[in-house]
């Protein structure tokens, strides 16, 4: 018996699976373009660390382009994604979204009032955004792959 005999025929993807992969691939391409463009937009020999990603200055052309790509790219990929996921993943997505939301609405006012009393630095919107995304991602991965 050759290796060819033991290879299972590759399963054809259903339309739902094709839409699902397209949505994820499209989002990855948009993310890659934004990330690559951000790096290319930095001055030669500049710093590519967290400061650039979170708070460093950006050119107006990149900022407008990235904002448009984020809004349009995300809207398109999310619309396709939600039409392509099965109910197990939809449930994971809904709980992950809720957890991400709580990860924003619980710390944000706490940080805000503490800052107003001079007990904390000004609230950092990007840090809250990242926290919300990390919680969202962890819960989604746990519910989908546990």
């Amino acid at each position: 018996m050759t290796d060819v005999d033991t290879v299972k025929p590759r399963r054809r993807l259903s339309p739902r699976q094709r839409r699902y992969r397209f949505a994820l691939g499209f989002a990855a391409v948009v993310g890659g373009i934004v990330g690559g463009w951000m790096v290319a937009d930095q001055p030669k020999g500049g710093d590519y660390g967290p400061e650039v990603i979170f708070n460093g200055p950006l050119s107006a052309s990149f900022a407008i382009g990235a904002a448009l790509l984020w809004v349009l790219g995300l809207a398109i990929s999310i619309a396709i994604y939600h039409r392509a996921i099965d109910d197990h993943e939809e449930r994971a997505w809904l709980w992950a979204g809720l957890a991400g939301w709580y990860a924003f609405i619980i710390p944000a006012p706490v940080w805000w009032v503490l800052h107003r009393a001079d007990l904390a630095p000004p609230a950092d919107a990007m840090l809250l955004f990242v926290l919300s995304m990390v919680v969202n991602g962890i819960v989604w991965l746990w519910l989908k792959y546990r």
């Binding site: 259903s14 739902r16 699976q17 099965d86 109910d87 197990h88 993943e89 449930r91 989908k144 792959y145 546990r146």
Partner: peptide
């Protein structure tokens, strides 16, 4: 069923 393998596994193990 046109769902993911993870969905089948989650149903079988009673997690979903």
């Amino acid at each position: 069923l046109d769902v993911s393998r993870q969905a089948v596994n989650a149903i079988e193990t009673g997690k979903y």
